[in-house]
């Protein structure tokens, strides 16, 4: 029995982190997930459009919800930021009929209306709650063994918890559980629930790098060999800007950062190239080499 979702790709997975989309498509079949991609969906607004125009931003989300509703499917997100923004929008629209009506009037010109019947779920949540960790363990072919993996949750998949209602915002477990399920050891460190600084990295780079660098260094000092995140915006900050963050805080970081589905794919024995690992700025060769060696042994 397949779990079927409307896949909301968001911007980054079709833009600056194409490896996220590639690795997602490479693993979901193995987990019993089938998707119909919402190819006509827009940006969710990322919380930025909403700063200028709250109702307009809600309309962007509601437009996507209406598309999924027509398919009769719940939405699967693969971006922590999309999850936070769209999950929050969905809660507001479902709990406030006057707001839903106002937003639907914005969609009217396009012949769309959202009735408030769908749910929005991140891949991480679907793996933990619907696929189940046992099923995931069944698919693990290369145990990631004594690799120490630092979870980096990202803000919007945790907070505000009243909008999300999945994980504990102070002591989240979901990503840690998935790391254990692929046979690796999760690294515990305070920065795992903090901010990567990405939203201000273009205009306030010094502040963002200090935040980013502190989190990476803390994970590294706690023994991490690699980091994993369910948010591609965090990934951009942690990977693309890592070298600059290291210079900013005066530390040698060199910590590879994986997208969640890349970590799952490596454990499933999927070749690194098919997961887009060659696209990272921080080299992942050392990790891939360890895994390839294990594969040849087993």
């Amino acid at each position: 029995m397949m779990l079927t979702y409307a896949l909301y790709p968001g911007c980054a997975a079709k833009g600056a982190t194409p490896e996220l989309f590639q690795s997602t498509m490479a693993i979901i079949g193995r987990l019993g997930i089938a998707v119909t991609e919402l190819t006509a969906s827009s940006c969710c607004g990322a919380g930025v459009v909403g700063e200028a125009d709250p109702d307009g931003a809600l309309a962007l989300s509601a437009r996507t919800f209406a598309q999924a509703e027509r398919l009769g499917l719940d939405i699967m997100t693969i971006c922590g930021t999309c999850q936070g923004v769209m999950g929050g929008a969905n809660r507001k629209l479902k709990s406030d009929p006057a707001l839903l009506d106002r937003v639907n009037r914005i969609l009217q010109a396009e012949g769309l209306a959202y009735r408030g019947t769908i749910q929005v779920k991140h891949l991480l949540w679907i793996v933990v709650r619907e696929v189940g960790l046992e099923k995931l363990k069944d698919e693990v072919q290369v145990t990631l063994g004594d690799l120490k993996i630092a979870p980096f949750y990202g803000c919007y998949i945790l907070r505000p918890s009243g909008d999300l209602g999945f994980d504990d915002p102070e002591h989240p477990h979901s990503l840690d559980q998935v790391i254990r399920a692929v046979g690796a050891e999760p690294v515990d460190y305070g920065g795992k629930i903090k901010c990567c600084g990405f939203p201000i990295i273009l205009e306030k780079e010094d502040i963002a790098l200090a935040m980013n660098g502190a989190n990476l260094k803390e994970a590294k000092d706690a023994g991490a060999d690699v980091m994993v995140t369910p948010c591609p915006l965090c990934h951009m900050s942690l990977d693309i800007y890592q070298e600059r963050a290291g210079k900013k805080i005066g530390a040698s970081l060199n910590l590879p950062v994986l997208h969640l589905p890349q970590m799952l794919g490596l454990a499933m024995g999927i070749p690194a190239k098919d997961l887009g690992l060659q696209r990272h700025l921080v080299p992942v060769d050392a990790i891939v080499k360890v895994i390839e060696e294990r594969k040849s042994i087993s």
């Binding site: 833009g15 600056a16 827009s42 930025v48 205009e203």
Partner: peptide, 20 residues
């Protein structure tokens, strides 16, 4: 920060999604 918000909205209006 203001340029970020205005520019982001302009790009979404032009491309439908953000163009990084």
């Amino acid at each position: 920060g203001a340029r970020h918000i205005i520019g982001f909205r302009d790009l979404v209006a032009r491309f439908g999604r953000l163009n990084e």
